[in-house]
Design a protein around this nucleic acid. Structure first.
Lengths: 329, 329
DNA sequence: CATTTGAATGAAATCCATTTCATATGGAGA
DNA sequence: TCTCCATATGAAATGGATTTCATTCAAATG
């Protein structure tokens, strides 16, 4: 069943059928005749032929570090809900945390395939920058700020500045920070910078030294908490860059009989279930992952539909959720 | 840059270039000439044109209930790792728990788009069955057994039969079960059936009555635990169909000063972090989600590559992880 | 030596829609 | 009455590959 057969059955030309499908000039009689034939035959135009001709795939490529992550899968849910409603398909590219794969997929997607790309980024190298800037198809970056590129990111700096201040206001003066690798600018650099600025602004510059780097796991949190405490002696508050790390830290503190929050305050980040079920529950920061996905999808659609619009960089807020681990009774 | 231009530059016909790309008969000289021209021009054949002609998209559609779920995103990671390695792209369809959407996407994917479909299923209606059976393109169902359809599923029955027996062997005789809606055959029906069979086989048929249905949330677990205990009096063990529900139940028990495991044993399912960070930690069942995704992808590829192969139904095992909530000191 | 057989090749058909171009018609405006 | 314009229409070109078919030539087989 192709357009020619339909045309023949309806007694019109190919062009007429195409006009029917695309709402072009067409008399009422022909329109009706074609409608009838299509209904009877159940004809559906070949998407591939349409793509070949129009170069519009109605498909968006999403490149992400790993799908089985709380934040990423939530961003994805947001992206999907917007694109789905607009009739776009999603091509998924999971890089398994391999930054080279990101560039590879960008290249694959670029090569006549998708109408736009959303890149959920963690590490952005110099090479990324140049590749991204050179592309023609619309792109939106999620999770990292990238000057001059449309992006949606979280306010890591102020989230952690506020969080650190919250701790300082409780009277703590020997803080420690468990962070992440600096390669990840948002999570590794910005959060740490906020912690350091906050303690310095509070007149406690020495505290800015008390930082270690962990992986995003419970066991790493356990190890790094130990490392931190052994290196800098007893602290009175521990700020962790993720909930998982905070849970690991809590496990270590418990094993050493250090009471939270009585002897030490503790915070995490992410507002996953995990921080609300420990004893004590852990103070954390909520980001708006799903919303960031939605926002990114909208930004992308805007770029695709209108032309000559300004580059938008969207910074999303956060909510500090204070739980038992920072509340002194 | 299209194939004709390359052909002209290399002084050969279109067909020769196509043969070069597809490893057909070609003399060494022409091969080299074409190679050179392609290298110089950076030519890449149009994927869309290839698809139009060959009807092979090198794309697999994955339909799932929601991506922001622990189990689903892990299955997805498994699917991706296999397909990625074989050069397939993944088209994602998130139904947001709407079974009608599943059929819709199946239809969309069917309409000349993907080489195969993986359906991560929760609810399978009669309509699903008939639609699935009528399809021509290969399909694999994950998470539910479907006689006569290639599928990969977890051994829900034996997992919960074993788990219930584990509890019974500890001397418990007043059990309760918090399950899920029967629409979900694997999670709702099979697990409950296993619980009921186990208590009956142990000579405690009355316990089979002690069941309620919850949603997959912590708060629902809290409510339903209350409901169960208020309806049937004090029990000595509670079997929950997910870790989240178990965590909710634990919260309720704590609020009532019922000691776990001293006064009541408690189990969950899923082996997510959440069951390993509560106090006490909760005994749970691990499924092999990522492996199920991998297996499904392999099954699909098999179907696509070989013909006339038997329908395979793959049942994957489980591991019971005994934590503090069932260990009496 | 006659005859298969296999490798090598290009012209043309094919996949299936959209779009351009040329042409026709009826009505509005000058 | 003469333009001009919007509507209506189909033939043919287009997008860019793969595949069939016919043909050639050389080597292998009997």
């Amino acid at each position: 069943m192709n357009i020619s057969e339909i045309a023949e059955l309806a007694g019109v030309s190919n062009a007429a059928v195409s006009r029917y499908l695309n709402h072009g000039y067409l008399s009422e009689e022909k329109r009706e005749a074609i409608r009838k034939v299509i209904e009877e035959t159940g004809y559906r135009p070949s998407i591939q032929a349409q793509i070949l001709r129009t170069r519009k795939t109605k498909t968006i490529g999403v490149i992400l570090p790993r799908i089985d992550s709380y934040s990423v899968s939530n961003v994805m849910a947001g992206i999907d809900s917007v694109l789905e409603a607009r009739g776009f398909q999603i091509l998924l590219a999971d890089t398994h945390n391999n930054p080279d794969k990101e560039l590879e997929y960008l290249e694959i997607f670029d090569h006549q395939h998708v109408d736009g790309v959303i890149l959920i980024a963690t590490v952005l190298t110099q090479k990324h920058m140049s590749v991204i800037k050179k592309r023609k198809a619309p792109i939106v970056v999620v999770g990292q700020q990238l000057a001059g590129i449309p992006c949606v990111y979280h306010d890591d700096y102020h989230a952690f500045y506020d969080l650190t201040n919250l701790i300082l206001q409780k009277g703590c003066c020997k803080l420690g920070y468990i962070g992440a690798l600096a390669q990840d600018r948002a999570v590794g650099q910005e959060r740490r910078r906020a912690y350091c600025d906050a303690v310095k602004d509070a007149g406690l510059p020495a505290q800015a030294e008390h930082t270690v780097i962990a992986e995003f796991t419970i066991s790493s949190g356990r190890e790094k908490a130990q490392e931190l405490l052994e290196a800098y002696g007893t602290l009175d508050a521990l700020i962790c860059t993720t909930d998982r790390i905070a849970v690991g830290a809590l496990q270590y503190l418990k094993s050493k009989n250090i009471q939270v929050p009585r002897q030490m305050l503790l915070t995490g980040h992410g507002a996953a279930d995990i921080s609300s079920v420990t004893a004590p529950t852990i103070t954390t920061v909520r980001y708006f992952y799903e919303e960031s996905g939605e926002e990114a999808a909208k930004l992308l659609l805007d770029q695709m539909e209108k032309d000559n619009i300004p580059v938008k960089e969207v910074k999303l807020g956060y909510t500090i959720i204070e739980n038992e681990s920072t509340v002194l009774k």
